[in-house]
Nucleic acid binder design. Structure first.
Lengths: 136, 136
DNA sequence: GACGAAAGCTTGACTACTCAAATATTTATG
DNA sequence: CATAAATATTTGAGTAGTCAAGCTTTCGTC
């Protein structure tokens, strides 16, 4: 078996362990990793608003996945809809004040979890991996 | 945001893209990545049989996930049940002849896909990443 | 400036899981 | 050796998505 194939198999295993740790860490705030990613991209987008299709691309799910994910988040007022006067097809998404605070709180846990997950690697090694991953 | 947190976020994105490519490549054989992983671990286990709980650990899902995943695979005779005379609780899983052939065929696609996914990386870089991933 | 094609989003039906509880069997202990 | 605890698996109910089809709005072209 080639090193490429072996890597993908090992990678799948490691990824599943990482995701479990991250989900466990964020569950304290009542959110999943995917919901955290949504909030992360909203928070860091220039106008704090994004189209649903952009969010889908960013977090690696489909547009309908975004619709279903956002529905409960709107209900508890973490995010809200905003319409684009220039294009009535679009339904822009925005973090509410509460959503912004929740993101900041969750980020603290996420930072802790990240450092825990990657505790055996130096910053140089992480940068190196990040660089290699960027090529994929 | 720390390099660790940034890495996990980028990693999630890249992983989703990798999984999509792998699933697309294996769909030609009518199987998912998870099913491929099951067959892979069965094929490479010393006696070609494993307990469901071992499979669950290997592929990073729960025992009940394994039950549900294997049900259709048994139905189309890719895998079969075998009982352990020493322990009646166990229900061992084994690749059938057809399952073994399917695995070998799927492996060819998986190898192609792996090389394609990692085309921009040298073998040395892949080994390096595999090594770093092993520390996680 | 009408109209077919494309973009953005949602919905219905489905898949691939998860978790908690139930069942069956084995192991350990008093 | 009886019985409590632990192990292996399955099942019921729920969650997190997917895909294909549909609706509405915009764009491109003639």
């Amino acid at each position: 078996m080639s090193p490429e194939a072996n890597f993908l198999i090992d990678h799948a295993y490691t990824t599943s362990r990482i995701n479990k740790k991250v989900d466990a860490s964020l569950s304290y705030h009542g959110i999943s990793f995917t919901e955290f990613l949504i909030m992360h991209h909203l928070f860091n987008s220039p106008l704090q608003t994004m189209r649903r299709i952009e969010l889908a691309e960013c977090v690696g799910i489909t547009a309908s996945g975004v619709t279903r994910l956002l529905a409960p988040m709107e209900k508890i007022r973490i995010v809200e809809k905003e319409s684009n006067p220039r294009d009535a097809r679009q339904s822009l998404v925005k973090l509410t004040q509460a959503g912004e605070q929740l993101y900041k709180d969750a980020l603290v846990s996420f930072e802790h979890c990240s450092k825990d997950v990657l505790a055996n690697l130096s910053v140089k090694q992480i940068d190196n991996m990040a660089n290699l991953f960027g090529k994929i």
